[in-house]
Amino acid sequence: MSFNFQRKIAQPVAPHAPAPAAVGDETCLNCLPHGVGARVVGVSGDGSIARRLMEMGVVPGARVRVIKAAPLGDPLEIRVRSYHLALRRSEAEAITVVAGD
């Protein structure tokens, strides 16, 4: 699953993404620009939301992409494991991703 991350990391992916860290340009799903593919690194927290997100397939290694935000800016529509999921920005913040296919 974790192949080829290094190659993609070199490219700037998001205008407001944090500066690339030593291990890779990890960012949260909420900060990911729309339309950019990414892979899930982890889901933080141990509440029922984190659990539900993981059960829905948001597990490390899964491909995700933010499609769009709702008309009022929140929630977000994401694509994960070939289906579409709506989740709030606060929940997207708990999902760490690394950009790139």
Binding site: S48, I49, R52, L53, M56, P75, E77, Y83, H84, L85, A86, L87, R88, E91
Partner: peptide, 9 residues
């Protein structure tokens, strides 16, 4: 309430 809602085809 969390919103983890599938947007089905």
């Amino acid at each position: 309430p969390p919103l983890v809602l599938e947007l089905p085809p």
